[in-house]
Design a protein around this nucleic acid. Structure first.
Lengths: 340, 340
DNA sequence: TAGTGATATGGAACCGTTTCCAAACTGCCG
DNA sequence: CGGCAGTTTGGAAACGGTTCCATATCACTA
């Protein structure tokens, strides 16, 4: 029970509360002798200031809300670690909100813009639609988007089109012509153009550039998940003229493709090439060729940006956009197509 | 900017602040007509009560601190999801603290016992040592441990000895005699007897019971991680008389074993059986035989227990201990040993 | 030793709520 | 219509800090 208050300390040290407060916030104008006495009293009473009271009187909470979709597990945790690292360093507390479905999401977008409870808001992946953006902005609370796009907010992103292009290009250079793309549902349930749609664009561009006709039957979408991906790959491999390479919009989905290949007794990469996206941790253990995006770094950069905003730093007329580099990681699930 | 206060609302509705507060907390004794007027004023001014002021005045924060080691990623997220589900339901906010190293951990154990900032504390995996337990208990703040042991605190656990026994027994029943155990370092850096040590005990017990001599060279430990596990398995497989089955203390480490087997051109399970522990998500995709523990459920149960404590529920003289069931998941990485 | 500007200090006011107490109503009964 | 118990209500006090302002103290200088 640390119900000792600043007044107790003041009394014990024989000073006024103001002085104790000054010692606490090491304000310069406190005589050394006085500071000593106060510090002794603090130690003697084992006094710890009440953060809530401090928050109330200072008008700032030192909390940062992080909205994140847990269901994209592997990549989300890496990002969160990045965020945590930075926030801890700057003494902000991380209040975490999980969004698993539309309802939860809508609720959060209604509830969170409370300038008096959060100093800032970090949104992972599930960016706002226009109306929500409006409301967020009206609330005046600083917001940074990580892995989400909205013109009105500072954000940390990757060039998904480029990523899709990179992956597809890699397959083309290996000699593939029959290249499929599987992804989660492009019209994302969360009312925004998702990453997969942009990766798809890169896919189409690479194809077009190489003069390869796009075949609608080589393109599938379903909810995100290993099982769903496995089924899509399955369908693909049963086509009269199956693809020789499959580009999955995420590593998680690539795992599903790998499983389907196994079912079909296809050797990877000899009979079928598979490439993923994200470079989550298991990708390495599965020897999955993939497009690496800096997940941890995205968290770091986003949090740092937010903190700079909180410190009153202002930016050019433009809202800052940090674009992180992508890199193809060539492991062992891609190879030239089977010759025949 | 929602700097409208309760006084603004009171003025506009022509009532006292007390009445507005009563409406807000729907206290029964407010006349319907009055309630109406107040509600109109609230709507008109778009008033939202300031949670911090409320916290200060009520002495409770509605925050729950969760201490978790991010580095055990996959299992940690599942637990966290369980926690989040329950907390959200009960309107508690989840403040997350990551512990990646000893220093961070010590700091947290010093800082967190602030009864006035957190209503409760949920500790995942990294339980307190005796001194820390002392301090925690002195602070009076309710604590629940998940996947950690300390006699003084309520906790949600599994029977790791039983789990180790289960896994080893399974291998023995398949006909294996040369069974190795690899794990992270038993003398955990976090000053407590870890799960791996108890699983080891189960391993030894199963061996003894079957009359199989324990061979020290079949038992290895190193830091947690795929790479380290891979090396340990590597060493094991180069023994003059290598094991025919390896029990890894976690699925993550089992992945390392799988990789080592691949390097050695051993087929799993024909040439080598591998069993893990935890049943994290990828275990299924790798067809890994493993011991399933209810991760999500552990989070749920822990959070619910904490909330019951917060609601003033008291328990028998005993501190409550919830033990979750374990289950062997028989997939495709174990089989009888190669006959020869 | 008085006077000066700079530095320290005490303590009231404030942050925005809840809660408590006393006062003001209400409706009902005799 | 007066009295009374039960509801409603207003508003001061409290929560535990920070901040501001006025006052006290200090170290020098003339």
């Amino acid at each position: 029970m640390s119900s000792t208050t600043i007044r107790d300390v003041a009394k014990r040290a024989g000073v006024g509360v103001g002085t104790v407060s000054r010692v606490l916030n090491n304000h310069p104008s406190v005589r050394e002798a006085t500071r000593q006495r106060v510090e002794e009293a603090i130690a003697a009473l084992n006094y710890k200031p009440n953060p809530i009271a401090r928050q109330l009187s200072m008008g700032r909470s030192h909390n940062i809300a992080v909205i994140a979709p847990f269901f994209i597990r592997p990549s989300f945790v890496e990002r969160l670690r990045g965020v945590d690292t930075v926030l801890a360093e700057h003494d902000y507390d991380l209040v975490l909100y999980n969004v698993e479905d539309q309802a939860k999401r809508d609720e959060l977008y209604h509830v969170l813009p409370r300038g008096d409870f959060f100093d800032g808001l970090l949104i992972l992946t599930l960016g706002p639609d226009d109306e929500e953006a409006e409301r967020l902005q009206a609330s005046g609370i600083p917001v940074v988007l990580i892995d989400a796009h909205h013109p009105r907010f500072p954000r940390v992103i990757i060039d998904d089109v480029e990523g899709g292009y990179l992956a597809t290009r890699h397959l083309i250079e290996l000699g593939h012509h029959r290249i499929a793309y599987i992804s989660d549902i492009l019209e994302s349930p969360f009312k925004q153009v998702g990453a997969s749609a942009r990766r798809y664009e890169g896919y189409r561009r690479a194809l077009a550039e190489a003069g390869i006709d796009f075949r609608p039957e080589y393109y599938r979408q379903d909810h995100h998940g290993v099982r769903e991906a496995q089924q899509m790959a399955h369908a693909l491999l049963e086509l009269p003229e199956p693809p020789t390479a499959i580009f999955a919009a995420s590593d998680t989905q690539a795992i599903g493709v790998l499983r389907a290949a196994e079912e079909h007794r296809l050797r990877v990469p000899q009979d079928l090439s598979v490439i993923g996206f994200d470079d989550i941790e298991v990708a390495e253990y599965l020897n999955l060729t993939t497009v690496h995006q800096p997940l941890f770094t995205s968290g770091v950069e986003g949090a740092e940006l937010l903190i700079r905003m909180l410190n009153g730093e202002t930016f050019d007329p433009e809202t800052p956009v940090i674009q992180l580099p992508l890199r193809l990681i060539n492991r062992q699930t891609t190879a030239p197509p089977p010759s025949r």
